[in-house]
Design a binder for these strands. Sequence first.
DNA 1: TCCGAAGTAAGCGCACCTGT
DNA 2: ACAGGTGCGCTTACTTCGGA
Length: 312
Amino acid sequence: MLDAHRTAQAIADTTPANLESAGAALVEVDGRHVGELVSIPESKLAGKKWAGVQFARADLTRSALRLLDDGEVWVPGEATVGRVPLCPLAELGEIGPDRRRLVDGFERTTSQTAYPMVEGHDTEQRKSLVCIPDAYLSPLVTPKGGQRPGYGEHLWQQAGRLLVAERLWLETNRVIAMRTHTRVLSNVWWPVKIEEIAHEKALAVWLNSGLGLLTLLAQRTSTRGGWVGMKKADLEQLPVLDVRAITPQQLQAMSQLFDDVAEEEFERLPAMADCVARRRLDDGLTAILGLPDLDGLRRLLASEPVVTNRGL
DNA sequence: TCCGAAGTAAGCGCACCTGT
DNA sequence: ACAGGTGCGCTTACTTCGGA
């Protein structure tokens, strides 16, 4: 167990590295590397409530802020930088109802209804970019919580085929976004209602790439350490690849990349550095968008304490 | 037609539950 | 004990109502 006072002393004695330059100011206690200090201009933090404190490594903070700021793709150790068009997720689709709403509008059933849902996070079942509904909802004739009759159908209007984790256990999670062939609601995934299938597929690719993961982790709300949640308001503002701003050929290629990788099994996040499926996804993305190799980024993300549930 | 009151919808967080 | 999930009270924001 680290002594809090001595850690504080070590922090006070260390001169932080500058965000805009390179390098890391290591904080050491008894010769152990316990963290890194980085100073960030206040102007960089405007509107990004957790920016700067989400990652233990200064280089990930740099990558995240540069990406979130203006779509600059900087991978530690890579000589060239790339650029991607980003926009808030809410501009591309509508995010569905909070799980609390389902309790008021439906009851769950195993018998088939017209209202399928994706239930749960079981990492043995959520291994790839595609998933199939595994439970059904039945609208309550008399909704709970004082909602009016027909509340279930009302909620159903917000069902979607792109699913983004509403909360997840970073240590065991494999994919943070998936796509279903049919519209669904879910208890632990946010459904995102998007009209164009190519957009859905491209976003599923983006979100699971190293860059998507970096932005999502930067927006996360931590509760029990590696057990993190995504708030609806944060997800709406989450910068994602603006699929309207890339060329039709690029969009088509992203969609094809989704299909190519769709059935592959992803490793758990701490093993992402050497995960074959994730590497294919990243390599495909960088080839299509002309970006630097994301390998270094994937390695840093894989070793983040919040992902591994261990120290640096 | 103004404005506070009342009604309604939605999202968050906490306590607690459960299967391995 | 841990990974993962449930139930639901509560707050907040928006909408509608109704009386002067």
